[in-house]
C-alpha cells in the first residue's frame, strides 16, 4: 500500500490552507502530521482521504489517482476525528451495526463485538451514545473506524478526550495495525505521543511543509521550534 500527494493546494477563499504539499507514505508506517493551529493539518487530511477535493494537485493510492466520490476508495478509508460522529439516540451496538451495514461488513455482529473488545469498550454495547463520556465516545468512534479493516486509517486528534489508559490502548492498537497493506495518518497536537508512534514526521506551517523526515530521533522541543516563522522567533 502506498499513499502519495503531488503539489496539493487547498484554499478557503483567498487563504491557502494547504500550499503545494508533496507526500509519500508507504505501507507498514505511521505518518504523524504536526503543526500549529491553522497550519492546514486537518485540510491536508481531508484532501488525502478524498473528503475535500483539492484546488490543484492529486492524491494517489497504490499509484492510482484518488477520487473522493469513488465508493471503492471510500471503502478502504477509516476516520477518527475529534467529533466522534455517533448517533446519540442509538446504542453503541446500533451505531456500529449501522456503519458496518454501510461498509458491507459480513458477519457484522461478531465484527462489532470484536471491535468493541479491541478498544476496551465491550461493556458499552447497550448504552446509548448520549450517555457516554467523551473518552468512551472516542473509543467507540475508534471501534467504528476499525470495523471494515481500512487500508488507510486517518486520525484527526484521536487522543482528544481519552484518559491515559485509553490513550495507551490507542497507541498499542495503532502499533498492532502495522502491516505492509496498511497506512496510518495521524494529525495531533500531542507531540510526544505522536513522535512515539510515528516513523515519518511531517510539520506544516501556514499550509507549507517545513519538515518531512523518517528519522525517529526528533524531540518535541525541536519540533515546537519549527511551528514558528523564523522571522517571528525571539
Amino acid at each position: 500500500m502506498t499513499l502519495s500527494a503531488r503539489d496539493l493546494v487547498c484554499s478557503y477563499g483567498p487563504t491557502r490552507a494547504v500550499d503545494g504539499v508533496d507526500l509519500d507514505v508507504a505501507g507498514d508506517s505511521i505518518l504523524a502530521v504536526f503543526g500549529p493551529n491553522g497550519a492546514g493539518k486537518t485540510t491536508l487530511l481531508k484532501a488525502l482521504s478524498g473528503e475535500r477535493r483539492p484546488d490543484s494537485g492529486r492524491v494517489f493510492a497504490d499509484g492510482r489517482a484518488v477520487k473522493g466520490s469513488d465508493p471503492e476508495w471510500r471503502s478502504r478509508v477509516g476516520l477518527v476525528s475529534h467529533r466522534t460522529g455517533l448517533y446519540t439516540k442509538l446504542t453503541v451496538t446500533e451505531n456500529l451495526l449501522f456503519f458496518a451495514a454501510l461498509h458491507g461488513v459480513t458477519r457484522a455482529a461478531p465484527a462489532v463485538e470484536e471491535a468493541l473488545a479491541t478498544v476496551g469498550a465491550r461493556e458499552l454495547g447497550r448504552t446509548r451514545a448520549e450517555a457516554l463520556s467523551r473518552g468512551q465516545r472516542q473509543r467507540v468512534a475508534l471501534a467504528r473506524a476499525l470495523l471494515h479493516d481500512p487500508a488507510v486509517l486517518f486520525l484527526d486528534e484521536p487522543f482528544s478526550g481519552l484518559d491515559p489508559s485509553g490513550a495507551a490502548a490507542l497507541e498499542t492498537m495503532l502499533r498492532a495495525r502495522r502491516s505492509p497493506e496498511r497506512i496510518v495518518v495521524l494529525v495531533t497536537h500531542d507531540l510526544r505521543r505522536g513522535l512515539r508512534l510515528a516513523d515519518r514526521v511531517v510539520v506544516l506551517r501556514r499550509g507549507r511543509k517545513v519538515l518531512d523526515d523518517d528519522r525517529a530521533e526528533w524531540k518535541a522541543e525541536t519540533l515546537l521550534g519549527l511551528f514558528t516563522d523564523p522571522g517571528n522567533r525571539a
Binding site: S49, G50, E51, R74, S75, V77, L79, S81, R83, T84, G85, L86, Y87, T88, F99, L102, H103, A129, R137, R144
Partner: peptide, 10 residues
Amino acid sequence: DGAFRHLLLS
C-alpha cells in the same frame, strides 16, 4: 456529533 462526515465518507 458530526456523523454526517462519516456517512458521506462511507
